[in-house]
Nucleic acid binder design. Sequence first.
DNA 1: AGACTGACTGACCGACGAGTCAGTATCGGG
DNA 2: CCCGATACTGACTCGTCGGTCAGTCAGTCT
Lengths: 211, 211
Amino acid sequence: MGNDASSVCSEGEGCRKIVAAAEKLFADHGFDAVSMHAIATDAGISKANIYHYFPNKDALYLAVLQSAGASLRALLQEAVDSSGTASEALHHFAANHLQHLLARPRLVRLFLRELLEKGEPRARDLADAGLADLFASLVQILQVGQERGELRNDFDPALVATMLLGANVIFFQSRDLLRQYPTVHFVDRPEDYDRAMVEVLLRGIRQSSNA
Amino acid sequence: MGNDASSVCSEGEGCRKIVAAAEKLFADHGFDAVSMHAIATDAGISKANIYHYFPNKDALYLAVLQSAGASLRALLQEAVDSSGTASEALHHFAANHLQHLLARPRLVRLFLRELLEKGEPRARDLADAGLADLFASLVQILQVGQERGELRNDFDPALVATMLLGANVIFFQSRDLLRQYPTVHFVDRPEDYDRAMVEVLLRGIRQSSNA
DNA sequence: AGACTGACTGACCGACGAGTCAGTATCGGG
DNA sequence: CCCGATACTGACTCGTCGGTCAGTCAGTCT
């Protein structure tokens, strides 16, 4: 599935299969709920073979996160395109961002999981880095919009960036839940959701008024 | 700490201590990472004693979620007050909602964890119920505002409700992360964050325009 | 006193977890 | 054809897990 295992596996069929299986299982069930045996079985190899490539379970987990982080970051940065007006850039970002989230749900959940961890900072820094980049890009788009006079000056770009990211993340995370809610009709149309969402946001931050 | 263990413990000092310890550990590390021994130690009793109150680990976890759910739901519904204008109600809700989230981080993380689980639906329904209630309340506030002509009619209440909830949840969840980001100055002032956030939102959905 | 009850414990069990190891299959280069 | 290295395996160790059990202890009712 084109995951960026190459970055951590330096070629090698077996290794890639391991990371792919681990990524799936870790994302679905979390670190502690997944045994090395389960990973091996899913990858179609023996458990001991995993230790040929990775010194221990933590290292494998780290490798998975690293590989996932690389591809996820690349994917999401793709969504950032600061050309055109701020409005255009925001619409473009929101739509692409959410679309990418939905296209690779496992990677996303892997990172959301990490963000929830309190005790052991297994790879918080890694998870953080990706989000920080994204956040910075978004803030920049908004700032440029402000400097150009396209957007109002009385709001904090970081605030709106947070709102936008939050809107997408919560949509991603509670999609199934929302689906059970009868009157919600944007559940299966992420583009609709994003378009409407950015419109509301823009009306709140655009310079002066129009319809 | 006033958690609603009474709902599941029918009095009894020991039982309450168990649930309290379990709540803390489960919230911090997740179901699989917490052993019965750890819970017993933290509660200051023997492991076997836990089985005097709960038939197995899953039952204990369920009880914790149930108790947490009860108190969390009560807490959050407190934030809902549909008296006054929609603007007032939204401001009131946002501030209280976030404040409650931040006041009981463990309960929140317990539920966010559950929302992430894919395979076993240990208690998804339970976690869902709370959110659904809240969501419905918010939607209603917005609908009333629309009917009264206070808010525009061209937006989906469910969409804005989602945005508001999302804004609060992401703030809660990535607070530490945001703190490392230099230019963000609303991190340690949730009220500021919420006031500004709702203002932007309101400007986007309020009928006609004003400053 | 004695019978009964619920809270509680230490010692134990089988299962399964991560990780090890001795050894086999495979394969490219000399 | 053999050699060394790399890919890979089954069988093992050992610690910890969830869960059980026989039994102690404090109180309470009669």
